[in-house]
Structure formats: structure tokens, C-alpha cells
């Protein structure tokens, strides 16, 4: 426990060192090919500080959820250590539930319960006496604006409402660390605001630390204090969103949308095509500011303009950082 003691002293809530998890290769069955061995987490090291909203950003299959499962004691790593508030969770995975509130992606266990009973039951299973569980249930439902649907079963709710109800279960029976796996999936803006307000309140009033899994770059930029970019089981960068974006500050993103097809007969447009990522009629280019200006001048004048439907110039986002660091493009969401 020496790392734990040192980590706790330095205000580190969660310290992960050299975490490795390999899924063994599977043999092919009739009609289905086998899969090779996969390193879902490949030597991940991280430190999350007290009171921080720390993000894990990456596309599906990058290893975010595997990492989170190892942090929450749901999966044993093959190698490496996980230290949360001075407790070695590789050696004592059962302690995770007494330190961490976890919001997973699945709600099957709760689907047939009413929102109210799901929250109350979770509170009781988190060790609250009945009276406290009910008091916390009422407070959390009111805080998240779930009062009106408290009597309805989860599976009768829309995806966003159900997600918000599951988020409510993560808040009842307070824990110093919240691990939220894509908490706002399917939510409307009102529900999202309720989630982030509730997270902020717990951080400001109680010093809660939040570990957030997301593949939404906009959300990552607006709510995270620091973010680890995960790609194929490795942390390829870890910094504040601003710090990460500063790494590609010398680039501008140019997006061009053509009406029918790109006017590739114009030589300047044909030259741009070599650097563009094409998605249907949309081209995305990452250029130096001078070249971006030239490109815009080209497409907003002369014959190319007639073919142009829309264009945008933007400063880099975390997605650009992700791509600049060598990430695969598909899988990150910009909404």
C-alpha cells in the first residue's frame, strides 16, 4: 500500500499504473471467424486528482469501458495497479463499491422498477438505512426534476429519461468518487444540464471526484478539467482540453459542403482533395492559417463557388487533437 499512502497524501484520488488486460483469442465456430487476442488496456497509467472532472475520451472499442471495469472492481487486470483513496483495488476489488458510485451503460437490473423504487433500492443496497434511503431518494429525484415520472417503470421511459433515472441511482448513497460511463447518452439538453449541475454541486460542496467516459468531444471540451485520450488500449495524451488543443493551435479546420459534387475540374480544388477527408458531400481539411485563407478564397470565388453549399472555418477541437495524435477518425461524436 505504499503507493496508496503517497498518492492519498498528494491529493490523488485515483492512481492507475501499468494496467494491462488481454482478452484471449477465440476459436472460430462454423460460419463465424475466430478473433485474435486483443489488448483492451495496454499499459494504461493515470492520476486523477481530488475534486476533478477527469475524462476518458476515445471511440468505441478504444478500451475505455474495460479500463472503467477494472477501476470499479468488475474485472481483474492481468497486470498493473489501481489505487483509489489509498485502497489497492486489484487486491481488494470488493472495496470499490464502498468508495465509488458507478453508472454503467446497462439498466437491465432496474428496467422493470419504477424510478422511485430503483433509486430507493440502490440507496439501500449502498448501505443506507430505509429512512435515509427514502430521504435521499426524494432529494435526488427533486434535484434532477424526475418527480413527475417517479412512479413510472424505467422501461416505459424514453432513452434519455431512463438514462437520467439511472444517473439518479448513482447519486443516492453518496460516494467520494463517481465513475460515469457515458452518462448523457440520448438525453435532451435540459436533462444534460441537470446532470452537469448535479455533478458540479457534488464537486463544489463535497469535493467529489468524477471520472467520466465519453466519446462526445463537445461534452468533453465543456465539462472536463482534464482528459486522457485513449486509443487502442493506450493513453495517447493526457492534459486539460485547452492544453491538448494548444498542441494543434497552428492548424485551422476547414469544412466544405458541396451542392452536388466537388468541382474537381478546378485545379485548386483538385489539389485540396488530396488532403481532405471526404464524408459524402462534406470535405474536412486541417490546414495552416495561411493555406486555410487561400483555400477559402479559392472556393468562395470563381467557378468553385457555384458548387459550394456551405463552408466553416473553426479553431481546433478535441477531435482534431485526437486525429493529430494518430487516432482513427470514426467513433467520436460532435453533438
Amino acid at each position: 500500500m505504499s503507493t496508496g499512502t503517497a498518492a492519498a497524501r498528494a491529493g490523488t484520488v485515483c492512481a492507475v499504473r501499468g494496467l494491462v488486460k488481454t482478452y484471449p483469442a477465440t476459436r472460430g465456430r462454423r460460419g463465424a471467424p475466430g478473433t485474435p487476442e486483443v489488448r483492451a488496456t495496454d499499459g494504461i497509467s493515470l492520476e486523477v486528482h481530488r475534486g476533478e472532472i477527469f475524462g476518458l475520451l476515445g471511440p468505441n472499442g478504444a478500451g475505455k469501458s474495460t479500463l472503467v471495469r477494472q477501476l470499479t472492481g468488475l474485472m481483474r487486470p492481468d497486470a498493473g495497479s489501481v489505487d483509489v483513496l489509498g485502497h489497492d483495488l486489484v487486491r481488494h476489488p470488493e472495496r470499490a463499491a464502498r468508495l465509488i458510485a458507478y453508472l454503467g451503460q446497462e439498466s437491465t437490473a432496474l428496467d422493470e422498477l419504477t424510478v422511485s423504487l430503483a433509486v430507493e433500492t440502490t440507496g439501500r443496497l449502498r448501505g443506507l438505512p430505509l429512512r435515509e434511503a427514502r430521504a435521499e431518494r426524494d432529494a435526488v429525484l427533486a434535484e434532477l426534476g424526475l418527480d413527475e415520472i417517479a412512479g413510472r417503470p424505467l422501461k416505459k421511459l424514453s432513452g434519455g429519461q431512463r438514462r437520467l433515472a439511472c444517473f439518479a441511482t448513482a447519486l443516492v448513497g453518496e460516494r467520494p468518487v463517481l465513475v460515469l460511463d457515458e452518462p448523457t447518452t440520448g438525453m435532451d439538453p435540459v436533462a444534460r444540464r441537470a446532470v452537469w449541475a448535479a455533478v458540479d454541486r457534488r464537486r463544489a460542496e463535497r469535493g467529489a471526484t468524477v471520472l467520466l467516459v465519453t466519446h462526445n468531444v463537445i461534452e468533453a471540451e465543456t465539462v472536463l478539467d482534464r482528459v486522457a485520450v485513449i486509443e487502442r488500449g493506450r493513453v495517447i495524451a493526457c492534459d486539460t482540453p485547452a492544453g491538448l488543443k494548444a498542441r494543434v493551435a497552428d492548424e485551422v479546420r476547414v469544412e466544405l459542403v458541396w451542392r452536388d459534387r466537388a468541382p474537381v475540374e478546378v485545379p485548386e480544388v483538385a489539389a485540396l482533395r488530396a488532403e481532405a477527408q471526404e464524408a459524402g458531400r462534406r470535405w474536412t481539411l486541417r490546414l495552416s492559417p495561411e493555406r486555410a485563407r487561400a483555400a477559402v478564397a479559392t472556393v468562395t470565388g470563381g467557378p468553385a463557388f457555384a458548387a459550394l453549399d456551405d463552408f466553416t472555418l473553426a479553431t481546433p477541437s478535441l477531435e482534431d487533437v485526437y486525429l493529430a495524435l494518430g487516432g482513427r477518425t470514426e467513433g467520436l461524436v460532435k453533438a
Binding site: 500500500m1 489509498g86 464502498r98 453518496e174 460516494r175 469535493g207 467529489a208
Partner: peptide
């Protein structure tokens, strides 16, 4: 108490031998 972090923030000790480990919230009986 369930509010484990308050105690840990103030440096309360949870166990002998790991003096900086935060106290654990109680288990459900």
C-alpha cells in the same frame, strides 16, 4: 458514515497501517 470523503479530506485515519487510506462507506447488511 456514508460521506467518506469528508473524513478523508480532513486526514482521518481509516485503518492502522494504512494511515492515509480513506474510510470505506459501510456495506449493506
Amino acid at each position: 458514515e456514508a460521506a467518506a470523503e469528508r473524513a478523508s479530506a480532513s486526514g482521518a485515519t481509516g485503518r492502522p497501517g494504512a494511515s492515509h487510506a480513506a474510510p470505506l462507506a459501510p456495506r449493506a447488511r
